[in-house]
Design a protein around this nucleic acid. Structure first.
Length: 723
DNA sequence: GCCGTATAATTTTTT
DNA sequence: ATTATACGGC
């Protein structure tokens, strides 16, 4: 067992070497949980378990990929099932699609597609959308699916207009999805649960395949996900759940914290391992977080500890308004960079996406390189979604959402009236909109002049489809190059459409990248990947930029320096959080955010903020009072920060003039002699470097003359000094 | 009936 | 920034 157990604590070793029977690992922030999971998989393989008998579910694709790499570094991992819950469900459903009445090339509708469909059904059903928005109905239907409630079982409280509207729409919504051979995100999970429940032979096959099941971030699994896990493991009971109740922050999406809190009730024989030692943060930061979260009641009692140094006090900075706050953030970030922090070591977190705006402006002014995670994600860009709609429609002619999106983009003379007529025909004949375009009767609805345009549209789709059988990239090339989309952008362009065209190039690149990694995937595989990417999956953690992201997106990450914004009543806790349990979840969001910080933590609140169009005076977040006073240094920007952004701005601009593109600095390549700091092993000196493609395999001599082999790009090393 | 332009309105967290 | 909506021109 060469390296598998090396450097593990007792508790970690217990979790890694436990093989048969249920295992619960309650892992505090920064306690080496990912390490335990990857070593555990490596250990299972070492013990002779076949890779294809291991199923590991992670919260994001990024986590899955990271895990795949880390397991590979310890030996082979070829064949281990490693994916998110949604990807796993999609994969299973494709295999058994016929059992659920779908074809295996079904489309996955994103939130936007499903909202549009609901809106359309509301229009057809003449439901007043002033009082009940599509969004509310979407949430209600999602909640019903989470409880595995079918449309005919859905019961609405008579007094609730939103529920009544949902009851009216739900059946039609499912019917239209089925007609389009499409599923929404909630269907992926619900239909998988139903598949396992209703088809004993399928369940049997899957049970036999997945003999060892690991589920990470267990505190954020939903009831139906828990049910899937339970069905798969009920017989062999080899389920390993890892997570932390204090980091459960997706309750609004159906996550049920009781899955982890009550794990031992359903698996009484479970071995439980607590990982309470933190290797990430300073004593100060950890103590503050530990004290804060102690106020919650829905949790497992524990006390976090660390042997790391006490470090600096947490700094609490009050501003008068968001602009001042942004100026302070830019000032502090600039100072940190001057003090030797790399931009990639710094992160700015906020509860709601729109808080990033003023910060971006301040960073632009200050010449601070940054990247925003999420917000308007790449795949949510209009032009990207349009081209993807062409690809989707070519791949699945039933995809009504895709059809409606692009039938008239660029304009083909098919407006609302034509579309309504086609839609009526399609529903009457139980056919797709594409069928409607092809049928003689429906064609009679369309003016003769337009028929040629329609025919070339249909021909184009066949062409894309044919290209899609070769590769995703070739399909994308056709969709971008031959739809007239780019010409349309250019014609409308007053300069800014260059960005859009560049985004389409990037889409083609993404498709090419997919083809390279998945030669068998073709267009359908690429489409599935684009449907299930998370914002965080696109985070370029190798680029030397300051990261801006929501506190939710920050889960699982760590940064030497963290700045948290908008710590005010109404924002964190958010104004929508009312019940006691919702407030506890808000506190956990705060906890998750602060425990990302390794060495420096800054907390910001502003006295005034623009909320929903009007300026409001905010009071500081109640959670700030949950942090022991002696761990915090309270500062007013007027005293220590107001001038710094200006100084910094001047400096950075001078620097910018000299360097051609300051925003594209790559990470420094490792060199022997370089002094580095590792979160767990401490300070060390790089002894040797071996290049492996994009990666560098390095040997580092840490304090106490211990040599360790690390992958430079994965080890999260802090560079103390160059060689 | 469709197309283009202009105007106003709107933001919790996300697979 | 995107989208819903209205209006005038074709």
């Amino acid at each position: 067992m060469p390296d598998i157990l090396e450097g593990l604590t007792d508790a970690q070793r217990q979790a890694v070497t436990h093989i048969n029977g249920p295992l619960l690992v309650v892992a505090g922030p920064g306690s080496g949980k990912t390490r335990v999971i990857t070593r555990r998989i490596a250990h299972l393989l070492y013990c002779g378990i076949k890779p294809w008998n291991i199923l590991a579910i992670t919260f994001t694709n990024k986590a899955a990929n990271e895990m795949r790499e880390r397991v590979a570094a310890l030996g082979t991992q070829e064949g281990v099932w490693l994916s998110t819950f949604h990807s796993y469900c999609a994969r299973v459903l494709r295999q058994y699609a016929d059992r659920m009445g779908f074809r295996k090339d079904f489309t996955i509708y994103d939130d936007d597609d499903s909202a549009r469909l609901i809106q359309q059904l509301m229009k057809e059903g003449a439901i007043d959308k002033e009082r009940v928005t599509p969004r509310i109905i979407q949430t209600l239907i999602g909640a019903a699916k989470e409880r595995l409630v079918a449309p005919e079982e859905y019961e609405a409280a008579p007094s609730d207009p939103a529920q009544k509207a949902a009851a009216q729409v739900y059946a039609g919504y499912q019917a239209r999805l089925a007609a389009a051979n499409a599923m929404d995100f909630d269907d992926l999970v619900m239909k998988t649960a139903l598949l396992l429940r209703q088809h004993a032979d399928v369940l049997e096959q899957l049970r036999r395949r997945h003999q060892f099941v690991l589920i990470d971030e267990f505190q954020d699994t939903s009831r139906s996900q828990y049910m899937i896990a339970g069905l798969l493991t009920r017989e062999h009971r080899n389920i390993c759940a890892t997570g932390d109740p204090d980091q459960s922050i997706y309750g609004w999406r159906g996550a049920d914290i009781h899955n982890i809190l009550d794990f031992e009730r359903d698996y009484p024989e479970a071995k439980v391992v607590f990982l309470d030692r933190n290797y990430r943060s300073t004593k100060t930061i950890l103590a503050a977080a530990d004290q804060l979260i102690a106020a919650n009641t829905e949790r497992k009692e524990r006390t976090l500890y660390t042997n790391n140094p006490a470090g600096e006090k947490i700094r609490l900075i009050q501003s008068d308004n968001p602009n001042e706050e942004a100026g302070c953030v830019a000032g502090i970030v600039g100072q940190l960079i001057e003090d030797g922090f790399a931009a990639r070591d710094i992160a700015v977190f906020y509860r709601v996406n729109w808080l990033s705006r003023p910060i971006e402006e301040a960073f632009l002014k200050g010449g601070i390189p940054y990247q925003v995670v999420g917000g308007v994600a790449f795949y949510a860009r209009k032009e990207v979604k349009d081209i993807l709609a062409y690809l989707r429609l070519a791949s699945n002619p039933g995809d009504e959402a895709a059809f409606r999106r692009i039938i008239n983009v660029p304009p083909r003379g098919a407006g609302p009236k034509t579309l309504a007529a086609l839609g009526a025909w399609a529903r009457e004949h139980n056919a797709t909109l594409i069928d409607a375009l092809k049928s003689g009767q429906a064609r009679a609805l369309v003016p003769e002049k337009k028929l040629a345009v329609i025919d070339s549209f249909l021909a184009l789709l066949s062409k894309i489809s044919a290209a899609g059988d070769k590769s995703a990239n070739s399909a994308a090339q056709v969709a971008i190059g031959q739809t007239g989309y780019v010409e349309m952008l250019k014609a409308a362009g007053r300069g800014e459409n260059h960005d859009r065209i560049a985004n389409l190039d990037e889409l083609a690149n993404a498709a090419a990248g997919y083809d390279e990694g998945n030669p068998e995937g073709k267009l359908a595989g690429f489409l599935e990947e684009t449907a299930l990417v998370a914002d965080i999956d696109n985070w370029k953690d190798r680029e030397d930029r300051v990261t801006l992201m929501t506190m939710h997106a920050a889960k699982g990450l760590e940064f030497p320096a963290v700045l948290m914004l908008g710590l005010e009543e109404g924002i964190l806790p958010h104004m929508y959080a009312k019940s006691a349990s919702e407030l506890e979840e808000e506190r956990r969001v705060f906890f998750v955010a602060m425990t990302r910080a390794m060495r420096k933590l800054y907390l910001f609140y502003s006295n005034e903020r623009l909320l929903q169009g009007s300026w409001r005076y905010n009071i500081p977040s109640r959670f700030l009072k949950g942090i022991p006073r002696e761990l915090v240094e309270i500062e007013s920007p007027a005293v220590s920060f107001r001038e710094r952004p200006l100084q910094y701005r001047v400096k950075r601009q001078e620097h910018q003039d000299k360097s051609a593109s300051p925003l594209t600095l790559g990470p420094n390549a490792p060199k022997p002699g370089m002094r580095v700091r590792h979160g767990e092993f401490g300070h060390g000196v790089i002894k040797s470097v071996v290049r492996q493609g994009q990666r560098h395999k390095i040997t580092v001599t840490f304090g106490g003359a211990v040599d360790r082999k690390l992958i430079y790009e994965l080890a999260h090393l802090e560079v103390i000094s160059q060689a």
